[in-house]
Amino acid sequence: MDRWQAMRIFVKVAETGNFAEAARHMHMSAPAVTRAVASLEEVIGARLFVRTTRSVKLTEAGARYFEDCRQILSDIAVAEAAAGGSYATPSGTLAITASALFGQMHVLPILTEFLNSYPTMRARTLFIDRPVNIVEEGIDVAVRIGHLPDSGFTAIRVGTIRRVICGSPAYFERHGVPMTPADLKAHRIAASTSAWASPEWRFAGDQRVTIDPILQCNTNEAVIATAKDGWGLTRVLHYQIGPALLEGTLQIVLGDHEEPPLPIHILHPEGRHAPAKVRAFVDLAAARLRENRLLN
């Protein structure tokens, strides 16, 4: 077995943490995968994995070799793609992730525009309100709201999003308008239990109010609908109520007390080696999101 193929097998074992799973992904037998890794260990002169009956973990040497192998394999893939033309022309399937409502409202229209421009392309989305491991789930591009941890991925800032308190005009007529964050204690609150949920609502100047919501809903759409019906107040991200603000069915309050907005980034793991499909989509998405007045 050549060194390049053995490196591919080693990387897959490291990513899956399982010899049998790696064998399934690569359409090989488990013994063949084991032999390939053993051959690499013999050539290198160091153990790459610590094996137990329940787990497979990288050794310190294996972890360093894993990162080097990933870079080498990426460089080979770029060279092959460039030789075949796919580095210059978008091709294949593009996988995109974003939070559920943001993806539906703001990423999906960009994605369909992209597909219209490149008819041979295909795409799949993972719009979900939970952290997604881009590498493990085979994602090409992520649109993330919030401050990013240091990941080594390429991140392009494309806008900001406010956290806002809102209610219907009818509610404010009956119950009055809160003038300070502390006034929220006297109002009925519907709160989401989604990824952004927290019983402590923070405001500018390090003001904090612990909320005791009467109603908790597992989706942002539900609390927005409740607020539009005039039942109470809720806190959501600004873009989520854009249509309701234009219609006048919701109004924002306590705007002067808002904490700094959250950044929006387009994220991808391949840096300068990104294939044409990623570069073309990222360029389009960055332009469209920066044009969006709700996000700036």
Rank of each mutant, 00 (worst) to 15 (best):
V43Q: 00
K185L: 13
R70A: 05
V158Y: 03
W201V: 10
V253H: 09
R3D: 10
G159C: 08
G232E: 01
S198G: 06
A32H: 14
A23K: 03
A23I: 09
N133W: 08
R293S: 13
N296Y: 01
E60S: 14
P119W: 04
E137K: 11
R202T: 15
D212Q: 14
V107M: 08
A100G: 10
P213E: 08
T226F: 13
A287K: 12
T16Y: 06
D229E: 13
G138K: 04
V158L: 01
S194G: 13
L262N: 07
E80H: 12
T234M: 05
L115R: 12
A142M: 02
E21W: 00
E136D: 14
K57M: 11
E247L: 01
I264M: 11
A95R: 06
H265Y: 15
E291V: 00
S55F: 10
T210E: 03
V209W: 07
L250N: 08
M179E: 15
R235P: 00
I264A: 03
A155H: 05
S194I: 10
E270Y: 15
T97M: 04
G255V: 00
R64N: 12
L262Q: 06
W196K: 12
G255A: 15
Q5W: 10
M7F: 09
E258N: 06
T89W: 01
A23H: 07
L284C: 00
R64F: 08
E221T: 13
F66W: 11
T234C: 14
I76Q: 12
R235Q: 13
F19H: 08
Y65S: 05
F102W: 01
N133S: 09
V253T: 14
S55L: 08
P131S: 04
P169C: 11
E42V: 10
S151Q: 05
G271F: 07
E113G: 09
H265P: 03
S99I: 10
A286L: 06
L262F: 09
E136W: 04
F114C: 03
N292S: 10
V282Q: 00
I224W: 00
K185W: 07
L108T: 02
V50P: 03
H25M: 11
A123T: 04
A82Q: 13
P261M: 09
A100D: 11
S29T: 15
I9W: 10
K185S: 14
R130A: 05
G152S: 03
G146E: 08
L108H: 12
V223F: 06
E221V: 07
I145W: 06
